[in-house]
């Protein structure tokens, strides 16, 4: 987004109200910046010292007060894999349908979009109740990585679909016209042209979904559970990084140091993801502008 050019030229009127407004707006921004730096600075300052190879590669001891987070990392990884393995195929197909097959403004498309809006607005704890009722109890999966992953798959679906649909729509229509002029079916156009053209954008959607899964806690409390042992299968219970932080800080006196270190790992992963999204989206826009 660029600065609104017309306003750069507005004279900085020197009336008292104008000066006051300028001061308040700058102070507001400074306050937000300061608090944010305070939070990140505090996490980094207390957490960095706890990060070591041993921390990342060993199991927690004494409820997490000592030892590392290897089983927690493995559980997080499996929850992520399950969630994406379900949500990415469904999300991609839905996005293709919304962008290139459904009639614009058609009733079915409107219903699907409304459902996606609702899904995006449902609080995560309600997803937790739902996952507990459906996956853990009704389908008999119990507290397991599988149940947690499936719950999060439902949760990231709207985020994935929105991002992917936007990417498909961003592919210039000239591509579609050219394909049609060559007599290609719409299906062929999607598989041969639109999917490859939108691929970097699809990666952005995917990474956004990963970020959402990593950050989630409430939906996992009653689906994947608390167990901090190394999971042996998807049917085992296992705790994610976020739940590890929650448990250490709330239920384990003396768990603060390791909670800080785990928070550094989690925030570090999310910052990497954020950077990847920014880098990829810059890359994509430049490529499309260059292409035409």
């Amino acid at each position: 987004m660029t600065q609104n050019r017309s306003l750069a030229g507005i004279p900085a009127n020197s009336s008292a109200v104008e000066r006051m407004a300028t001061l308040v707006v700058w102070l507001g921004a400074a306050l937000v910046t300061a608090v944010f730096l305070w939070i990140i600075g505090d996490i980094l300052r207390h957490g960095m010292s706890g990060i070591s190879w041993a921390f990342l590669s060993s199991a927690p001891q004494r409820s997490g007060r000592a030892g590392g987070i290897l089983p927690v990392l493995v559980s997080t990884f499996w929850i992520l894999i399950v969630a994406l393995a379900v949500a990415v195929p469904v999300g991609t197909l839905t996005a293709v349908w919304l962008a290139d097959f459904a009639r614009r403004g058609g009733r079915l498309a409107m219903v699907v979009k409304a459902c996606l809006d609702v899904l995006a607005g449902v609080p995560s704890i309600v997803f937790g109740l739902f996952g507990n009722a459906v996956f853990c109890r009704y389908l008999g999966l119990g507290y397991s990585l599988l149940a947690g992953g499936l719950t999060l798959a439902c949760m990231v679906l709207p985020i994935l679909i929105r991002a992917l649909e936007a990417e498909f729509r961003a592919v210039p229509d000239d591509y579609r016209f050219a394909a049609t002029a060559l007599g290609m079916s719409r299906t062929r156009t999607v598989t041969a042209i639109l999917l490859p053209a939108a691929l970097p954008g699809l990666a952005v959607g995917l990474i956004l979904g990963v970020g959402r899964v990593l950050a989630e806690t409430a939906a996992l409390l009653f689906t994947s559970g608390y167990v901090d042992r190394m999971p042996r299968s998807l049917m085992d219970s296992g705790r994610s990084l976020s739940i590890h932080i929650y448990d250490l800080s709330m239920n384990v006196p003396g768990g603060e140091a390791n909670a800080y270190a785990t928070a550094v790992v989690l925030v570090g992963l999310l910052t990497l993801i954020n950077g990847a999204v920014l880098w990829l989206s810059d890359h994509v826009t430049r490529r499309f502008h260059g292409a035409i």
């Binding site: 937000v32 910046t33 944010f36 939070i39 990140i40 505090d42 996490i43 970020g211 990593l214 950050a215 989630e216 806690t217 409430a218 976020s242 739940i243 932080i245 929650y246 800080s249 909670a259 800080y260 928070a263 989690l266 925030v267 999310l270 910052t271 993801i273 954020n274 920014l278």
Partner: peptide
Amino acid sequence: LVHLLAGVPSVVFGFW
């Protein structure tokens, strides 16, 4: 910075 703030998990805010 605001984008980064938006990405901080709620459990980290709670912990802080």
